[in-house]
Design a protein around this nucleic acid. Structure first.
Lengths: 155, 155
DNA sequence: CTCAAGTGGATGAGATGTCAACTTCTTCGT
DNA sequence: ACGAAGAAGTTGACATCTCATCCACTTGAG
C-alpha cells in the first residue's frame, strides 16, 4: 500500500490536458449548436441517425444501445422520451415477446433530415477544417489506436 | 435556401466517427472508474484539482468556472452540492460583496489526495500507454490545433 | 417437461447539466 | 453624485444520465 504513484510526466500531462480541453470544448459547442439549431439533443441526434441509417428504419432496443455504446437503461429512457415527442415509436417484436423494436416515425425522419446538414456543417467548421487532410487522417489513426488499446483493457 | 449540403467525404466521416467513439468510450470509462474507486464524479474531481492546485486553495466562483470552461450556473450548482457533502466551503469576498470564494476543506484535500493516484493510473493505462511518446505528442499537437482553430470561430 | 439461469427491457430515485430569469453590487458616463 | 448598464451568483424548472432493481419471457440442462 501507499506506493509512490506513477505521476504523469510533464509532457504526458500536457498531452492529456490538451486533449481533454479540446474534446470538452468541441463536444459542448456542438451539442449546444444542435440544440439551438434543431431543438434536439446530441442523444436524440445519434439515435435518429442510427435508426434511419438502416434499411428497415427499425432496430431492437439493445442493438441500438450497443451500436452507440450506451447502457440499455439509458436507451430505454431516451426512447421513452423521444416517443413522447413523436420522433420514434415502439413496436412489438414477434420473435421475442420480451423485446421491442424502435422505429423512426415520419416526424423523426423529417427531424433528422432537417438537422443533419446544419450539424455536419458545424462539424466541418469546428473540427475538420482545423486540420489538413493528412493531419486528419493521422488524428483518426491515433484515435483508432486508443480505441483498440482500450478494448484489450479490462473495465 | 435548400442548397445541397456539403456532406463529409468518406475519410472525413470515418475520422470523425473514430474520434467520437474513442472519446466517448474513454471519458465514459474514466468517469465510471472514478465514481467506483473514489465515490466522486468527474465534476467533483476537476473542481477539487483546480482548487487545491492554487497556492491559496481558494478561488472566485467565476474564475473557477472559466478555468474549467463551465457556465457559471453549472459551477454554482456543483459548488452547492459539494458544500453539502463537506468537500468545499463558501467564503465571503471582502473586495466584492456580490462575490464568493470557494475553498477546499480538509476533507476536500483528503478526497483528492486519495483519488488522484488511482485516477492517474487509469489515465495512463487507458490512454497514455496506448501511444508511443511520439504519437502522444502528435496527438497533443493536433488537439491543440483544433482548440486554437475553435477559438477563432464564432459560437 | 420443468425449473434455474440468463436476457431484453422498464422503472424509480438521485446526481448532473442547461437555460432563462432574478437579485445584488459595481462601474461608468455625464 | 446618480441612474443605467453590466458583472457575480443564485435559483427553479426541466432534460438527462447512472445505478440498482424488478418483471416477463427464453433457454438449456437433466
Amino acid at each position: 500500500m501507499n506506493e509512490t504513484p506513477r505521476w504523469l510526466e510533464a509532457e504526458e500531462k500536457a498531452a492529456w490536458d490538451s486533449f481533454i480541453r479540446m474534446q470538452e470544448t468541441l463536444i459542448g459547442r456542438l451539442s449546444r449548436l444542435l440544440q439551438a439549431d434543431s431543438g434536439m439533443s446530441a442523444s436524440d441526434y445519434i439515435v435518429l441517425v442510427s435508426l434511419t441509417g438502416t434499411s428497415e428504419g427499425r432496430m431492437r432496443l439493445l442493438e441500438l444501445a450497443n451500436r452507440v455504446n450506451w447502457e440499455k437503461s439509458r436507451m430505454s429512457h431516451q426512447v421513452r422520451r423521444m416517443a413522447k415527442r413523436g420522433l420514434v415509436a415502439r413496436e412489438e417484436c414477434p420473435d421475442d415477446a420480451r423485446g421491442a423494436f424502435v422505429v423512426a416515425t415520419p416526424a423523426g425522419y423529417k427531424a433528422i433530415e432537417d438537422a443533419a446538414p446544419l450539424h455536419v456543417e458545424h462539424v466541418r467548421r469546428l473540427f475538420v477544417d482545423a486540420l489538413t487532410p493528412n493531419q486528419l487522417s493521422t488524428f483518426a489513426r491515433l484515435s483508432q489506436r486508443v480505441s483498440d488499446h482500450m478494448e484489450k483493457q479490462p473495465d
